[in-house]
């Protein structure tokens, strides 16, 4: 199916143009979700998309699946409820860097710890875009924000390492420039049984790029091209380069860990004494 047909099929009619700013990478990432769902030949009824609050979380309003646009940081608890109520559903959580790691930070580590089967697509634009460019826990240290006019002094989260340590069983990173890789990783994350997180480095030209003199939308996309390095090549970089670049691709996967809804079903069966 062509990209245009995919948009017609998986987007709610009459909702475009979307709300995102000129050059925002979020449109590309949302397109990748649609391509991944199509790649896996899932029907719209089999998929639930849950989002929190923020620029990224607007995606649930455009996508024509079962969708919930929930409260700030609370996409994961809502998604957990949906998955437990109907484990057959494919649950995709759309969230941002602030939504997932600040407001919903606790939910993130516990969903990862439980290894519940869902796929988190974390749109990382390094800033709270919608509210005017305040720094988030994933704003790189020293970067400028409206709440850090001299540069933030807070060290940023590496969300991939965070969820890996918390117990996630599929962890990946890509960018809105590496669109085909993003589609691939989202598809693999959905197919993976357990908690999957795909961090997608997106661009916010309006609130982040402007304050940090990163140039226009195309410059920010080229920055992603030049700084996102496949894991194998990243490991061979000098210590100096490792500080300014970041690894992309599948970073971590475990396939033999107990999945939460399966454990729950097994517990119910055992409690009923096999009846």
């Amino acid at each position: 199916m062509s990209m245009e047909e995919l948009i017609d099929q998986y987007f709610r009619p009459g909702r475009l143009p979307h709300i995102w700013c000129p050059g925002c990478g979020h449109g590309v990432v949302t397109g990748c979700i649609v391509k991944a769902v199509d790649k896996l030949a899932l029907s719209k009824d089999e998929v639930a998309v849950v989002s929190g609050i923020g620029c990224s979380s607007r995606a649930s309003g455009y996508l024509d699946f079962n969708t919930v646009h929930s409260a700030h940081g609370r996409a994961l608890p809502v998604a957990t409820g949906i998955k437990l109520a109907d484990p057959k559903l494919t649950v995709i959580v759309v969230t941002g860097d602030g939504d997932a790691t600040a407001i919903g930070g606790n939910h993130l580590i516990h969903a990862a710890r439980r290894n519940i089967d869902m796929t988190v697509v974390l749109y990382n634009n390094s800033i709270y875009g919608m509210t005017g460019g305040q720094y988030s826990p994933m704003t790189p240290v020293h970067a400028k924000a409206t709440t850090a006019p001299y540069g933030t002094i807070e060290r940023d989260f590496n969300v991939a390492e965070l969820v890996k340590a918390a117990g996630a069983t599929f962890v990946a990173r890509s960018t809105s420039f590496h669109a085909q890789m993003t589609t691939d990783l989202i598809a693999k994350g959905i197919a993976h049984k357990g908690f999957s997180l795909i961090e997608v480095v997106s661009a916010c030209p309006t609130s982040y790029g402007r304050q940090n003199k990163m140039g226009g939308p195309a410059d920010m996309m080229k920055w992603q091209r030049d700084h996102g390095v496949p894991m194998v090549a990243y490991e061979k970089l000098s210590a100096e380069d490792k500080l300014i670049k970041f690894p992309i691709g599948l970073l971590y996967e475990v396939t033999d860990a107990q999945e939460y809804t399966e454990a729950y079903e097994a517990l119910i069966a055992a409690a009923k004494g096999g009846k």
């Binding site: 062509s2 990209m3 245009e4 948009i7 987007f11 475009l16 143009p17 979307h18 995102w20 050059g23 925002c24 990478g25 979020h26 449109g27 590309v28 397109g31 809105s176 420039f177 669109a179 085909q180 939308p217 996309m221």
Partner: peptide, 10 residues
């Protein structure tokens, strides 16, 4: 088409 964030060109 691949890079357009607005699904505006195919």
């Amino acid at each position: 088409e691949l890079r357009c964030p607005d699904y505006a060109i195919f």
